[in-house]
């Protein structure tokens, strides 16, 4: 790790200013992604701004909205009684991520901002447009088993690795941001971006933007929600495919469905087409299969991830069956 200057921020404003002032400065929260990337030389900030002393750790209920501070730890959010009761999807997704130790360090803000785990991004001698714009995408013609089947470009086929983000996308969370131009609210589905011609940009934040928290509105999905993660081992591995499924069911009729997939795109992939198809229909395996098939029409696989074309719809159907209890 190259040497860097360490700044301990005690006020939100000074944290933001420190990063605005210095182009090579980065915030650090849990450090579980940043320190790893710094050790590997993937990123090399000259200034690291420690935000862990800011008062952003709380999870509070305010006017029927749940406010999760950016520094609330993944382990604490996952077990927060209110989250478990009203947003079980988020709790399950958090518990499916990383390990007990890492969840004790990882924060809500850091989790949604973690970088891709694409091996070409990690290995600094290989080409990668995300790490080194213009160097090419090593995965496109390389070993692309973990890579995207939705929304990729010929510049980048990496996927977003977060489990938490998939649940937040399905639950229509709002990201609360504070930055140079004041405070902003970004709907979670607009927070991350697709790679297009600028894969080095993961999301719609700009320099100096600090994520201060996430807001969730009460919903009717808590009784029928499931997060299903398929991975190479039973625990402590990133998703090949994951599905966050939440249903609002009346009798056997689906009023509303919320679906998002992980491990398949540069951002949490909301299944709007499938959601629309399911609304108003009976909760049957047949309908689940039809919804998944509709969504898969836009999927495109590469040499080593063709299995995802089968795994993804199967996982959608299975997650929906578990959520609907059919």
């Amino acid at each position: 790790m190259i040497p860097f200057q360490y700044v301990r921020a005690l006020k939100q404003r000074s944290a933001i200013d420190a990063v605005l002032k210095d182009k090579s400065a980065q915030f650090i929260a849990g450090g579980t992604n940043l320190v790893d990337l710094m050790k590997r030389g993937v990123t090399a900030p000259q200034k690291v701004v420690d935000i862990t002393n800011l008062p952003l750790k709380e999870v509070v209920l305010k006017n029927n909205k749940l406010l999760i501070g950016a520094l609330a730890l993944n382990a604490d959010v996952a077990e927060h009684p209110f989250v478990v009761k009203h947003f079980p999807l988020l709790s399950l997704a958090l518990q499916a991520g990383a390990s007990a130790q890492l969840r004790n360090m990882a924060t809500t803000g850091g989790n949604m901002l973690q970088r891709t785990r694409c091996p070409y991004f990690y290995d600094t001698v290989l080409p990668c447009n995300k790490r080194n714009p213009g160097s090419g995408c090593g995965a496109l013609e390389g070993y692309n088993r973990m890579h995207a089947i939705f929304g990729a470009s010929d510049k980048c086929i990496a996927v977003h690795p977060s489990d938490m983000a998939i649940a937040l996308a399905a639950l229509d969370a709002v990201v609360l941001v504070s930055g140079a131009k004041g405070d902003r609210r970004i709907p979670f589905t607009d927070f991350h971006r697709l790679p297009g011609d600028r894969p080095e940009i993961d999301n719609n934040l700009v320099r100096g933007d600090l994520v201060v928290g996430v807001e969730l509105s009460q919903n009717a999905f808590s009784k029928h929600a499931h997060y299903l993660k398929i991975r190479d081992r039973a625990s402590y591995a990133f998703a090949l495919v994951s599905v966050a499924a939440a249903l609002d069911i009346n009798g056997n009729t689906i009023n509303n469905a919320r679906l998002a997939m992980g491990g398949v795109a540069h951002k949490p992939w909301r299944l709007f087409t499938a959601e629309k198809f399911l609304a108003g229909k009976p909760a049957t395996e047949e309908n689940f299969k039809a919804a998944a098939a509709l969504e898969m029409q836009t999927a495109k696989a590469y040499e080593h991830n063709k299995f995802k074309l089968t795994l993804a719809p199967n996982t959608v159907v299975e997650a929906l069956k578990i959520a609907a209890k059919v």
């Binding site: 420690d50 862990t52 130790q101």
Partner: peptide, 26 residues
């Protein structure tokens, strides 16, 4: 040294963490 094995697990304020991904200065 990358958070993948747990050999470096210690407790900080009573909670288990991977000390390899923890900056001492923090």
């Amino acid at each position: 040294d990358h958070g993948q094995c747990g050999a470096c697990t210690v407790h900080i304020d009573g909670r288990r963490v991977n000390s390899c991904l923890t900056l001492a200065v923090m």
